[in-house]
Design a protein around this nucleic acid. Structure first.
Length: 211
DNA sequence: TAGGCCATCTGGTCCT
DNA sequence: AGGACCAGATGGCCTA
């Protein structure tokens, strides 16, 4: 049996990678043959009148076995092609996840977010940024109305910038990597969710989110 | 060693 | 018919 990596990176070639099925179609065909002729050989030994017919049936069976073996090969090839497509599909999905990780703010350490963490983090990050914009707009309107401006944020954290650093995990998974280490450049507002900038933290905490 | 994460295989279902 | 998508199963690797 091929290892996962072998089958992942080797050419789909049945000669180099034997896809052994625990229960093959050949076995099925053989089984159905037996079922189709219950007790044909053991219970009733072939004698005279039916011998010719039995012989013909045997020939038919042999021919049928071959054709089903061919069908099995076709199925096997189709399965391998489907596996290949599925592999590529998952690789594309992982590439997209990597791209998403790339635009998310970087963590202090090089810990790679897991898939679920990436999705949750992205979800929360988008929400927090949109909240930041909303609050900034509100305060901007108030400022225009006379009140001295209190900036929502000194700057909106850009993806990957040091303007914001991150703590904790975006998921509730107990085994998730811990991002609690605080960045020297931004010691003040580390929270359980990872947003540093005060307003973003506010936004984040006020988010009635699922996660 | 148990548990988490991941890649892959697989069969089913839906769509074109 | 064939491809895309999905979810379950499985086995490997890593970490606490």
């Amino acid at each position: 049996m091929c290892t996962a990596m072998e089958s992942a990176f080797s050419d789909i070639d049945s000669s180099s990678c034997d896809y052994s099925f625990p229960h093959t179609d050949d076995e099925d065909s053989r089984g159905s043959m037996h079922a189709a002729s219950p007790g044909s050989s053991l219970a009733s030994p072939l004698n005279s009148p039916q011998d010719a017919g039995e012989l013909q049936q045997k020939k038919k069976r042999r021919g049928r076995v071959r054709s089903e073996a061919a069908v099995h090969v076709v199925k096997k090839n189709r399965r391998m092609k489907a596996n290949d497509r599925e592999r590529n599909r998952m690789h594309n999905l992982n590439d997209a996840l990597d791209a998403l990780r790339g635009v998310l703010p970087a963590f202090p350490d090089d810990t790679k977010l897991t898939k679920i963490e990436t999705l949750r983090f992205a979800h929360n990050y988008i929400w927090a940024l949109s909240e930041t914009i909303r609050i900034a707009d509100q305060r901007g309107n108030k400022a225009r109305d006379s009140v001295p401006a209190v900036s929502c944020m000194t700057e909106v954290p850009s993806p990957g910038s040091d303007a914001c650093s991150w703590a904790s995990s975006a998921s509730s998974s107990g085994s998730s990597p811990s991002y609690n280490s605080s960045s020297p450049s931004s010691p003040e507002a580390m929270d359980d969710y990872g947003f540093l900038q005060a307003d973003v933290v506010y936004c984040y905490h006020s988010y009635p989110g699922v996660y």
